[in-house]
């Protein structure tokens, strides 16, 4: 029962990872690509880790630590990358609204 739940969770997580990789193809510029890839892949890997804990419960400590580390590091690096990408080349906006320009980075 629990094992099957784990398999289902890991499948959903893998689908989210596939979605994040396909989002790289679909989006028009860098910041939109990060919007697609970072959030979806973080959610996907958390789901994979949760499903793995349900599948083999004796590895729960290591897998939980792995999920915590990914949750800590992945948004940090994505945020730094977004800052520098914005400062280098701006972003794609169809109606020319740039709300970040007034703030001091």
């Amino acid at each position: 029962m629990f094992e099957r739940l784990g398999l289902v969770l890991m499948g959903i997580g893998a689908l989210f990872l596939l979605l994040s990789a396909l989002g790289l193809w679909r989006m028009p510029d860098t910041l939109s690509r990060m919007h697609a890839s970072t959030k979806a892949s973080t959610l996907g890997i958390l789901l994979v880790v949760l499903g793995a804990v349900c599948h083999t419960p004796e590895l729960w400590f290591k897998l939980g630590l792995l999920g915590l580390f990914v949750l800590l590091t992945n948004p940090l690096s994505a945020s730094i990358l977004g800052h520098s990408s914005y400062r280098k080349e701006g972003f794609y906006s169809p109606d020319h609204i740039d709300a970040l320009k007034e703030e001091s980075l």
């Binding site: 990789a21 860098t30 690509r33 892949s41 890997i45 792995l66």
Partner: peptide, 18 residues
């Protein structure tokens, strides 16, 4: 572009964890 390539590299790292 270099920035797109960095984003793809980051995504590859995360997917390889899974």
């Amino acid at each position: 572009k270099l920035s797109d390539r960095i984003v793809a590299f980051d995504t590859m790292g995360i997917i390889s964890i899974a």
